[in-house]
């Protein structure tokens, strides 16, 4: 799909709105909520790049998130290194996990990849609990310091990272790389017959997906100032998949907005007290039921009169 002037205008407008919202609202609370929104957006975009494009669903994206976050955690509490190192290191560690899980399973057809990712994340969660003496167990690692002291400046930093993430992934998705990934979704055998090294592209795109997810994990750790096993949980993975779905799978920017919207929704529903979870689930079910193509991306296309 061609990028139109209005799409770029829309993107700039959205980023401006996100950047200015905490200043306009004059609320430290909003800054915190939006920081979380934007981190989830990074995770959603990174999932969409691999799984949204190739159709090889990754049910354990939390593996990369947790890997990045715990890397930051260990750096802070065990090695007492300069916290900025956690950013590049979280990328490296997450990519290593991608190779370890992806290399044996992506070359196979069938559900092996999806199951392996799901299991790997679950296994890591258990390992964090079993080795509680080293990992802090249920309570995890705490004592992380923020990367930037001013919450507003940190938010702008994370926002910038998210914008770069989305831009890079969208460029890749629109390039020949993205074309090949979509062809892999179409039919792998035909891709092979077209002379394409399918396994390489699958593993490479998983590594790219993991890199950004791990980076998001490190940013999350330095925001929450603690990491704990629920980061590896299947709930984290499923939450992100739902955000991608609501945003519109395959578009990259749709999941970004889907993530922001759903995270905002969770906070905004606080006023409903005990019913918060019920309402959130109901909203999700309505969207998933009535809008199989997602909410955000199709809605934007409708509003701006794009040809479908």
């Amino acid at each position: 799909m061609k990028v139109r002037a209005i799409d770029i205008g829309g993107a700039i407008g959205a980023v401006a709105l996100l950047a200015l919202a905490p200043v306009l609202g004059n609320s430290g609370y909003l800054t915190g909520v939006l920081t979380l929104c934007v981190i989830y957006a990074i995770w959603a975009a990174s999932w969409d790049f691999m799984s949204g494009l190739t159709g090889r669903e990754n049910f354990g994206h939390a593996l990369f998130i947790g890997a990045g976050a715990y890397t930051a955690g260990f750096l802070a509490t065990v090695y007492f290194a300069n916290p900025w190192w956690s950013l590049p290191l979280s990328v490296v560690v997450a990519m290593a996990f991608a190779v370890i899980v992806g290399f044996p399973t992506l070359r196979l057809r069938g559900p092996y990849f999806a199951l392996a990712m799901l299991s790997a994340a679950a296994i890591m969660q258990r390992l964090m609990l079993i080795f509680w003496e080293q990992t802090g167990g249920e309570e995890g690692l705490y004592g992380l310091e923020p990367l930037i002291n001013s919450p507003l400046h940190y938010y702008w930093f994370v926002l910038a990272v998210m914008v770069v993430t989305a831009a890079v992934l969208m460029l890749l998705a629109r390039s020949h790389w993205g074309l090949i990934l979509r062809a892999i979704k179409g039919d792998e055998a035909t891709c092979q017959a077209a002379g394409i090294n399918v396994t390489f592209y699958k593993i490479a795109s998983l590594m790219i997906s993991a890199a950004f997810a791990g980076l998001g994990g490190a940013l999350y750790a330095h925001y929450q100032l603690q990491v704990s096993p629920p980061l590896f949980s299947v709930i984290t993975s499923i939450t992100i998949i739902i955000m991608v779905y609501v945003g519109g799978m395959g578009s990259i920017w749709g999941p970004v907005l889907g993530a922001i919207l759903l995270t905002l929704l969770t906070e905004m529903l606080r006023g409903f007290g005990e019913y918060r979870l019920w309402i959130y689930t109901l909203v999700l079910m309505l969207i998933l039921f009535f809008l199989p193509g997602g909410l955000v991306a199709p809605l934007w296309r409708r509003l701006t009169g794009a040809r479908s």
Partner: peptide
């Protein structure tokens, strides 16, 4: 952590009284 931020940055309470799970409180401390 989101609850603490809601109470302190948004509701701007004067004091907080509560807690239950040690892991949650530990995460909230900083």
């Amino acid at each position: 952590i989101a609850a603490i931020k809601k109470l302190t940055a948004d509701e701007k309470v004067d004091v907080m009284i509560g807690g239950y799970t040690s892991g949650v409180t530990l995460a909230q401390l900083p």
